[in-house]
Design a protein around this nucleic acid. Structure first.
Lengths: 254, 254
DNA sequence: GTGTCCGGTTGATCCAGATCAGGGCGGGTC
DNA sequence: GACCCGCCCTGATCTGGATCAACCGGACAC
């Protein structure tokens, strides 16, 4: 979770997102959460097996295509979402349309926690994803019943805050090469290495999104990657996968 | 609390900071917290009057001169600090010495909350200040006894996270003029207007620190302020006080 | 097949803000 | 008083990354 800065937001969204999400139907309600791949992560990790029936009835998984908005900045926060699979981007928009991506969310991350009544950012899938929707009221009830849920929420928010401060350092101080190197290292720490043991990173999002996260234009990102490749620090395997050839060199550049 | 980004950090510091802080002695222990000016703010706001004796024995106020470090990035977090008066700057440092200020803390803000065992940033007074030290263990005990404290902590951390994301937007997207305008507006919202009713902001910190917060050099900050003054948006009353002549113009520039 | 679209890359040029340099001023010490 | 030191301001110049423009190649429609 090092690289996902703004994973935790605020509340929930009311109407189903634009490209109508597929609601699953043919599943045993009580058993659904028990078999959930994100069961031990996110907020649900703070619950015991006895809570699963309640959890199953108060939440609902949604299968989403890519480029589907899940929550919109400023809209009333009526639910929170736990990412079960896929990847989402979280971003804020300036009145004139400039966008800053504050983080990417992957399995286990929680989206839509809000300080006030409105979502703090927009969240949108970058790949086909599955998220689990839980109304804010259900979350509140869970927190009242289980102090551990509140503790988990606090821990997750604190981690997000720390990541956000790292991103502030990156955006305020670092050069383009340093930003990209830091980003690749952070990503490589949370992904598994290739079969031969060398670390690699998977970048399913378009380059323009990586740029919007790092405060760089896609042209600059492209040039920096080429430069790092020329220096022998990385190899570009495909458009969405990079092998880290020399972590120490990246570390030095970050 | 809009402008203070990194007010919440991690745990506590062991030895007293360099310019040895003045520990107060001639006060009734049980009565100290009851008369505290920050009593209703920070974490203490979640406690009832009955908790004051315990609170008074587990915390201790410290009077600090300006430029006094309170917590150091990376050091083991043994205590948290509540700001009672004055102003502190919170910053992170890169190996080569570049510094990024992540926030300024004022009365009511809590410093030193940590995700792991080490402080996430360095905190240092920018004016003479009074802070109240509480060991991390005492905080943990308070949280166990009063779930409301944990709730308060979660609320404060969430506000910090939201502020940090705003700062990410500022650093990633905005121009120098937009950054300074946003900063002045955020400050003016949390300070009281002058006697004649016009809003003003108090800037006790050196210009280089404001620059380090906004990702700008002090020279650039100086030029931007001159530009805003020329446009009639602000007036520089003294070196550390600015009057907002035209909030709408600032809003438009932000 | 052909055409179109979109993401990515590369090159040329531009510019906002950094850097470098000098000077003014207020507060402190002696 | 004279001197020093920190902070701030201003001007001149430099530069990292943005911007503008063109091209390429894969995916998709027809």
């Amino acid at each position: 979770m090092t690289f996902s800065v703004a994973t935790i937001a605020t509340a929930a969204v009311a109407p189903p997102p634009v490209p109508a999400p597929q609601a699953r139907t043919a599943e045993t309600v009580t058993g659904r959460c028990a078999g959930c791949s994100a069961r031990s992560k996110g907020l649900c990790g703070a619950l015991t097996a006895g809570d699963l029936p309640t959890l199953s009835t108060s939440s609902r998984p949604l299968d989403l295509l890519s480029a589907t908005p899940v929550v919109m900045e400023g809209e009333e926060a009526e639910a929170v979402f736990t990412v079960m699979s896929g990847m989402l981007k979280l971003y804020k928009t300036l009145p004139d349309g400039r966008q800053q991506i504050t983080g990417f969310a992957t399995a286990g991350d929680v989206i839509g926690l809000a300080v006030g009544t409105g979502y703090a950012y927009t969240a949108e899938t970058v790949t086909a994803s599955t998220v689990c929707r839980m109304p804010r009221t259900a979350l509140r009830r869970m927190m009242e019943r289980h102090p551990a849920v509140q503790g988990r929420l606090l821990a997750m928010t604190s981690v997000e805050l720390s990541a956000a401060q790292d991103q502030i350092l990156l955006l305020g101080c670092k050069t383009a090469v340093e930003r990209v190197s830091s980003f690749l290292l952070a990503l490589s720490r949370r992904s598994r290495p290739l079969a031969d043991g060398t670390p690699s990173v998977f970048l399913p999002m378009p380059k323009v999104d990586i740029g919007a996260y790092l405060g760089l234009r896609p042209e600059t990102l492209s040039r920096v990657l080429r430069k790092l490749e020329g220096a022998g620090a990385i190899t570009r395997l495909t458009n969405d996968r990079i092998r880290i050839e020399n972590p120490a060199a990246l570390e030095a550049a970050a």
